[in-house]
């Protein structure tokens, strides 16, 4: 393979592997910025993936090419409903955030496979017919050299997702909603004294994480796994959480981290086709995101460790 085609392959597979992580990591950022730790991202992705695949299989004939896009939204909505469990448990019922998040992770795969069996009478779905594929981005792909690497045979969705991370950054740091969201994650008492509805903001944060995690799962299922089974989502949610932390709870940081993790994943997936990394044990690439996250956390020592009130329940006193 020549250098350009290697780069094209690496770039496009990096984008494809990263996009679901980016969406989910942004979701986690919203939740944790509001002060609710969300270790349940994995479970939310499972539900998003499941719903999208079921929708895709059921309606592909009806919606044709548009199916994956609509299924994406279906996955997002399913994610919202599923994350409501976490929101009610942690915000209203004062449950421990870790326990509640773990419940999501325990519940999602079992529930999804259970429903798959109820619907299809077998343990995994058929492959979907309408998936997100590779395509060229018009005009940009004509740029010499770079155009071929970045914009031909690539994932349009991934570029949209990268754009979404900038939008999320604007929402979190440049709008009233974002300011209030962050305030309840940093110091809910202070926010409360200023008349900000702590519970409302926290519900918003968690439900947005449901939406984004659901989208992430739906995207993964329709661009990478192409069907749904118990092992469709195996650690992507936790990797997204790692990207969120590595990105310092900043959507753009999360996006860049997710791109990096996606790069590591894509190398481990396509590495065998590339001569000079063929001999690197795949395990290094597989564990890189997790090892790096731990190292970064340790190196943060004394610096930014996430929103200050993250993981705490707020009980309004009277």
């Amino acid at each position: 393979m020549n250098i350009v085609s290697i780069l094209t392959l690496v770039v496009s597979s990096t984008l494809i592997f990263s996009a679901p992580l980016i969406l989910t990591a942004i979701g986690g950022t919203f939740s944790e910025r509001s002060g609710i730790v969300n270790v349940g991202l994995e479970g939310i992705m499972v539900i998003g993936a499941f719903s999208a695949v079921v929708f895709n299989l059921s309606f592909a004939d009806k919606f044709g090419d548009a199916t994956p896009w609509i299924a994406l939204i279906v996955g997002g909505i399913a994610g919202i409903f599923f994350s409501l469990i976490h929101a009610v448990a942690t915000i209203t019922l004062r449950a421990d955030h870790i326990i509640s998040g773990t419940v999501l992770n325990l519940l999602a795969p079992s529930l999804a496979v259970f429903l798959v069996k109820v619907i299809y009478q077998k343990g995994q779905t058929d492959n979907i017919k309408q998936a997100f594929g590779y395509s060229d981005i018009p005009l940009l792909d004509r740029i010499p050299f770079l155009g071929q690497i970045f914009f031909s045979k690539t994932s349009i969705v991934a570029y949209i997702v990268i754009f979404i991370s900038f939008v999320a950054w604007i929402i979190i740091f440049k709008t009233k909603f974002g300011l209030r969201l962050r305030s309840v994650g940093e110091n809910p008492q202070a926010a409360d004294t200023l008349g900000i509805n702590v519970y409302l903001m926290r519900y918003s944060g968690v439900l947005i994480s449901g939406l984004m995690g659901g989208l992430g799962g739906a995207l993964f299922a329709q661009s990478i796994s192409i069907n749904f089974s118990i092992s469709t989502i195996a650690g992507q949610g936790f990797m997204a959480m790692a990207a969120m932390i590595f990105g310092k709870w900043n959507p753009i940081g999360a996006m860049l981290s997710a791109l990096f993790f996606g790069f590591a994943q894509s190398l481990s997936a396509v590495g065998s086709q590339i001569s000079f990394i063929k001999n690197v044990p795949v395990v290094y690439l597989q564990v890189a995101p997790y090892v790096i996250t731990i190292i970064v956390l340790v190196a943060f020592l004394g610096k930014y460790n996430g929103p200050k009130a993250n993981g705490t329940n707020y009980i309004k006193s009277k």
Binding site: L179, R182, S183, Q189, A191, P307
Partner: peptide, 19 residues
């Protein structure tokens, strides 16, 4: 009752933001 990670301006305007 201040939010350490916010700027002075953000702390003052929180809840009374101009948009």
């Amino acid at each position: 009752m201040l939010i350490d990670d916010f700027t002075v301006e953000e702390n003052i305007s929180l809840g009374y933001e101009n948009t």
